[in-house]
Structure formats: C-alpha cells, structure tokens
Design a protein around this nucleic acid. Sequence first.
RNA 1: UGACCCAUGGUGUAAUUGGCAACACAUCGGUUUUUGGUACCGACAUUCAAGGUUCGAGUCCUUGUGGGUCAACCA
Length: 559
Amino acid sequence: MENTEYESKNFIEELIEEDIRNGKNDGRVHTRFPPEPNGYLHIGHAKAICLNFGLAKKYNGTTNLRFDDTNPATEETEYVEAIKKDIKWLGYDWGETEYYASDYFPQLYQFAHQLIDSGLAYVDDLSPDEMAAQKGTPTEPGQNSPNRDRAIEENKALFTEMREGKHPDGSLVLRAKVDMASPNMLMRDPILYRIKRQTHHRTGDEWCIYPMYDFAHGQSDSIEEITHSLCSLEFRHHRDLYDWLIDKLEIFPSMQREFSRMNVAYLITSKRKLLKLVTEGHVSGWDDPRMPTLSGMRRRGYPAAAIRNFCDKVGMTKRENLIDLSLLEFCVREELNKTTDRVNVVLDPVKVIITNYPENQTEQLRALNNPEAETPVHRELSFSREIYIDRKDFMEDPPKKYFRMGPGRNVRLKFAYILNCTDFKKGEDGRVEEIHCTYYPDSKSGEDTSGIKAKGTLHWVNAQDAIPIQVNIYDRLFNDPTPDGHDDKDYTEFINPDSLEINTKALAEASLQDRAPGTQFQFMRTGYFAVDETSTKDNPVFNRTVAMRDSWAKKQAKK
RNA sequence: UGACCCAUGGUGUAAUUGGCAACACAUCGGUUUUUGGUACCGACAUUCAAGGUUCGAGUCCUUGUGGGUCAACCA
C-alpha cells in the first residue's frame, strides 16, 4: 500500500540508519551519556539523556552511563549520586552499564605508553606560558617544542617517573606529537596527561597524573565499544583528535557526531554560572525551584514526562537556537492538566457572608477531582454561611466584561450555589473586608432548577474548616531572555528581584492538610502547585509550578 | 584575516531526497464551557542575497552576506 506513514528523521537517526544499512558494527547501536560529576544535571542534559537513551531504545541498543571523572579538582561523590537520581527520575534506566572513566586509568596509562613507543607522544617541560606562546594563532602556525624530538626511551622513563610521583605538579606533561601547523588548534600537540596531586573521589591518591578530556573520552568510548558518541557542537574540533587517537592506538572505532545545544529563553545552563548562583546565595541551592536543574524542576513540580516531551518537540539539528520558555510551560501544563486533581485554594482571602444561609448549617457538596480523568472520582467539600473568595474576584465597580463578583451581580461558586452580591464593607484602609451575598437555594451544582444564569464561576473555601498554607509563587529567575549573552553585563545583573513571593495568608480546602511532598494539584483557576519537600502537616507548603493560561489577565495587561 | 559548522514564519522543527512549504508553540479572532482552564475552528512565511543548472529548486552548483565555534596542565 502507498499510504504508509512517512516518519521524518533527524540527521542523527539518518546517520544511524545508514550505518545499520551498511552493516557497520553488525547493526549494533550503543550510545552513552557521559556527565562529569562536578555539578547537577540541568535541562540541557535532559536533551542529551533523551537523545542517547531514546536512540538506543529506538534501535534496540544499549546506553551506558559513564561518569567522565578525570579532573579530581572539581568532582565529588555527592554529584554522582545526584546525577543518578535525576536520570532515574527522568525515566531512564542504564541497568548494569554504569562506568567511570577513572576505572580506565590503568588502561589509559598503557595507551599513553603505546603512543610513546610509536614515537607519537613526548614529555614536555615547557611552562604553560611558553607553551601558549609556541601554540601560534588560528591564522599563524605554531612552533615545535624543543622537547618534541626527545628520544623514545627518555620519554618512557620520564613518563614513568611522572606516574611514580618523582616530579612536582605542573612540571611535566605528556603531549601527542601531531602537527604544530594544523589549522585546528587542538591538533597542535595537545596535552594528554598532567601531573596533579589531588585526591580523586574514587581512586583516592593512587594516581598523581590524570588524563585530559581528549585522552579519556574517546578512549573510554572505544573501550566500551560505543558505536555513536554524541556530543554538543563545540566539540566538533575535538573530533579530529578523537579520530587521530583511535587511529594511532588501533582501538575500536567509535564515531563522534555533534548536535546543537538547547538554549531556552530566560534560562542559563552553564554549570559554572549555576554554581555561582548557589554559592552566592541568589537561590537556596541546586534544587531551588527556580533553577533549570532537573532537581529544581522536579521540586517545582515539572513532571518528568513533560520534560521528555519538551526535549522531543525541540528537535535535533546543528543550528543555534533559542527556544521559547512558553513551549516548556505548554508541555508542563499539558501534562498536569491530565493528571492533577482540582482543589480550592484562595490566595488572597476576602470573607463572604451568605446572609440567607442558616447560621448553624453545614452541608457536604460533591466535587469532581479531575474532569479530564477517564474514571471520575469525587470528594466531599463542606459549605456553610461564611466562605472566602479571592480578592481579585470582586470589584466594587466592575466593567461590563468582568464576569466575577460585584454589587448586584450573580456569580456561581464552583460545585456550590449561585450567589447574588448585595453589599460589601470596607475597612479603615479603604480595602474591601467583607462581602454580603444571598444564595439561590435551588441553584445547587448538579441539581440547579433556578434557571438563573451566572457568567462567572469562582473558587472558594469554607471559613469553618479552611486551613492556612504557605504558597511559594515562583517567577522566572532572570528578566532577560539571554542573561549570559551580553558581553558588557554579567548575568547576575539580570536576576529578577521578584522571582519568589512567599504567600502566608492563603487558605486551602481541608483536604490539603496532610499531603505527601511532591503531590501535585491544580488550584482551581490559579495554577498548578506541588507540595514542597519541607511541607508538614502543621505547616503545609506548596510551590507554584506554573500559572494557568489566563486570557483575561492577558487582555487586562494590554490595557 | 585561517579552519570548521550553520542559515525555512515571532520561536522550534518538517518537507517522503529536485515536484502544491507542513507540524507545534506563541500571537490575534471565534465556538463550546459550572475553571476567563480544557477542547474545537480560523488567521498569520513565496525558504538570507545574487547568479547558474533544470520543464520544475527550500533542496543541486557558484559567489556573497550573516551567525556560531576553535589558541585551559577544564570537560
């Protein structure tokens, strides 16, 4: 048949399918996710995780988790644990294939000797400044080091001494003998090993020399027989060295390909810059709900499924990009709309007295938890003479298009009755402090025979049993779409001073008293919220994940 | 004054490989609605430029233009 669906593939999938067609690696697909354990995973990593694990799943392959831990100065076990937790939370499982570049230190050391034996590596004693001076520039060739032609035996002896700790930190390095005139600066005799007396989080003090990225990453890929090693665009120039080393070492030919990093407006994804936000106290930690880290987004209430869907929608190309934050928020709302229970929470309470409702009466109303759910589930909601509504749902002198409460107007209370506003009282400060209404007894939700129409529907809480909660209202951390894209200004200058508003006057329906951290809700007409991990029965705390789409507010803002 | 990569609506991608520029987000308008939510309907680009090849070019070629990356004993 001709109506078979055509599935569009990204350039990496095209490449993999071509390899499979050609029988390369017997059609095997083996990817890896290689974080350095020097910080927490962020939204940018999510794209790489989804890519690597997604590809392996699609082509029946495997994905290794490999910690790229070759720089003991910055790496810690704390980060290893956090990274594993975040990957699992995102929904991926690496099974038994958990590796560490540091496990390969002995093998890498042998590789270095192999290169020396082939006359393709030498020990250099130049200072960093001298080396830089000889490096040349992108338009001028560099100069050979005076040590470049050191005898093989001497190189072997010196390198062995480096490993044995006979030379001080920084005094010697091992360099590959490639080409000091290469147009690719990375091929100008790159450093392979440096001396660094620093305790490693896994190997302790066993080593005082450590391989550089270029002599660890590709070799680790090769040792693990990774077929497709995918990384971001800025590593394109490393590919020449990657291939050169594999070729000279005659080891498994892993193939590196590059894709463009994900840039999301108003977010930053530089680990160094995120670390600074933490250490300088701009946020409460790596998992602050305003952080673009997976732990921060988790705490904020972004569902893993939403992040996966976002990564999928963003696509895979080699172009520079700046993705609208609204796409991420769309994915979050789309998921939460399907999954969360709707509850009544009043953020800025104003008391409403229903003057014709019996003083000592309380009735139980039936409330639908989630109208989107396949099987409807209901809960009970208590209702009585005094309730609270949100301050912004009342106007003393409302315009015609305002559908909420105002003197003389009818408005429905969700799951309850239609009210008619008869009066209101103001305090000394001029603020409305009490609203009087009457209710239509025959307008009860689900059994309304009143025939009365109310344009608006409000959320509310029963004054008798409403509980006080703390609500953290989060907004974007930066005021600028590209906070770290300005040459003349530091990104911290764009920090939004109003990125967190702590609301302690909110009142919630009684069912929210003792909910487990991480539980998510839609606060009816307000937004999506998640129970914070610090929340307790006596002090419930909720984080705003994202506000509802609000076409009314949008219209008002334009005026 | 080098090398490498990239260029399709406001944004991110697609175009069955040379054959009617599609999808999503955003924006605007409308319908439905006991959430100003959801759902649904509609509007919104002749593909960076100029040449060339061709019956036919977003796609191929040439030359430009614009953007990105590269000179850490970081990854």
